[in-house]
Design a protein around this nucleic acid. Structure first.
Lengths: 157, 157
DNA sequence: CACAGTAAGTTCTAAAATAGAACCTTGTCA
DNA sequence: TGACAAGGTTCTATTTTAGAACTTACTGTG
């Protein structure tokens, strides 16, 4: 399978991976959520090569996850900001953080903690059912074919 | 940065990526949640090369995400099952599915829908605050240094 | 007993992606 | 004029991945 076939697959995991399926892209988004906006700042914070950073940012812009905004005219300078689609990625990132916090923190404890301003509590991100707000367990979920999959029998997800 | 430095970073996103930071690994886990267990089944369903599949499964086993269980003795045959750590990955996968469903489904609609047996409803996965159960927005969350990060000032997350 | 089949890998070469460093462009400021 | 800044592009070397063939240890069939 070639990677540009991924976004045509009838599976939301595969399609998402076509966009964010490499480690650098996820780290770029992580730092974007920490308010990083400029090319050189991303480069310095991540240690990514300039070449890869340029190509990843261009891809994120092309796909609508970030936008390139001029912040001065001469010389022309740009910054990269999350779009609504990009901001929405936060739920995936926080799920990833929760998983890492739970399973990979080790004896020293978690690197970061989070305070929810809305309720005032320290919290962990939890992925729940939109209807009953209970945490999801694979054994309690039944997948069924959706409209995007009818009359296409070769499914994986 | 080399990729084996990732798991030592004081950031749960980076540490998680050290395990699941490539596309094949995430697709392997996806199919594991769809009850795939055997080498040849993973290979046929995913189209991954046998070489990569073997190395990815070995890594997942080594890191505790899956276990290799003998299901017959002669000839010895094994299957791969999710551990509790692996099952817990479901929340990340479902967050990914929700993001793909929302932003990448296109006109045809979402590929899969999900029924929650616990409450009987079709649902979308939502990442919420463990305390107040409200969906997370980056603008309402304040990250603070946790115990794993005290006296280590060079942070990204 | 030879022989086709099955499951789970390993080994090989070619192609693609990434790392690391240097270079380029357009402007400002001293 | 020359140094500096931001945002890239270009180059070669190294690492990863793709694709196909081969291996091993059995089993059941004629």
């Amino acid at each position: 399978m070639k990677w540009d076939e991924l976004d045509g697959m009838p599976c939301s995991v595969a399609r998402s991976l076509a966009i964010v399926g490499d480690r650098w892209t996820i780290l770029i988004l992580r730092n974007a959520f920490l308010r990083t906006r400029r090319f050189d700042d991303f480069q310095a914070q991540l240690g990514i090569t300039r070449h890869l950073l340029a190509s990843r940012l261009a891809k994120l812009v092309k796909l609508g996850v970030m936008t390139k905004v001029a912040y001065q005219d001469r010389p022309p300078r740009y910054e990269y900001r999350l779009t609504e689609m990009g901001r929405d990625w936060y739920s995936v990132q926080m799920a990833l953080v929760a998983w890492g916090n739970k399973w990979l923190a080790g004896a020293a404890g978690v690197p970061l903690e989070f305070l929810h301003q809305k309720c005032g509590h320290k919290f962990q991100p939890v992925t729940v059912c939109s209807e009953c707000r209970e945490p999801l367990d694979v054994r309690e979920v039944t997948p069924t074919t959706g409209p995007g999959l009818r009359q296409r029998p070769n499914v994986t997800r």
